[in-house]
Design a protein around this nucleic acid. Sequence first.
DNA 1: TTTATAGTTAACCATATGGTTTACTGTAAT
DNA 2: ATTACAGTAAACCATATGGTTAACTATAAA
Lengths: 118, 118
Amino acid sequence: MVNYKKDDLDQVFSVLADSTRRAIIKELSKGENTVKKMAAAYDMSLPGFTKHLKIMENAGLVSFRKVGKYKYYYLQPKGIDYATEWLNELSSYWKSQLTSLEKYLLENKEEDNDDHDE
Amino acid sequence: MVNYKKDDLDQVFSVLADSTRRAIIKELSKGENTVKKMAAAYDMSLPGFTKHLKIMENAGLVSFRKVGKYKYYYLQPKGIDYATEWLNELSSYWKSQLTSLEKYLLENKEEDNDDHDE
DNA sequence: TTTATAGTTAACCATATGGTTTACTGTAAT
DNA sequence: ATTACAGTAAACCATATGGTTAACTATAAA
């Protein structure tokens, strides 16, 4: 790991790889919010929480506006779009590679009902 | 970090947060391949490379079939779908929350390269 | 049967990561 | 002027992560 440096997509996906940060994103998708208000929902110290916000900001997923002593954070969807695009391109390419049998099997899977919830 | 445990989505996004692993995924989207064949493209020891495959396998993104001394790895798209769904749900919810002005701005962004504030 | 090939395991290392506490700054309220 | 409140900074800690090398197993080829 001599010369390892995170690129943009690394950073975006790293943000998403943490359930606290995914929860923050969901929260912010409802609208902007202040640090303390959001932090209250998490079993974590305030400095711990603001570290997550800093990481998300560096990755370009959130920004904030300052009003007096408050910081209102809001989503910066461009960053998320970046990740979404990578996945969508992948899956469109991948699907174009499938044989018709594979496509048939894919259409008719139905029974893979693991809980995909959080 | 007393009791921190990665859940499914954590694992999937963690896989995606590494450019080597994203490259492996793209490679495998063209079809199955063996370990050494794939490893040749990376400036990394073989054990280092197989560690990545193990991580991807644990996250449910790849599987393999063994043929003699070869392991043929292939994509297991369910895992990736899981990540894609999370992002798509988010963005559909997020878009439904926008005001019509915001939607207008979103449609017509084209060039929004200024930092909002800070 | 010996040798080559494909891949894994184990031990190790440096840095990153997710968290803490304590002390601080800046703004608002009394 | 003092106190409360919102948030940051710094130092620290334990574990995770991405990598290495050396030694191994299993299958295939000579």
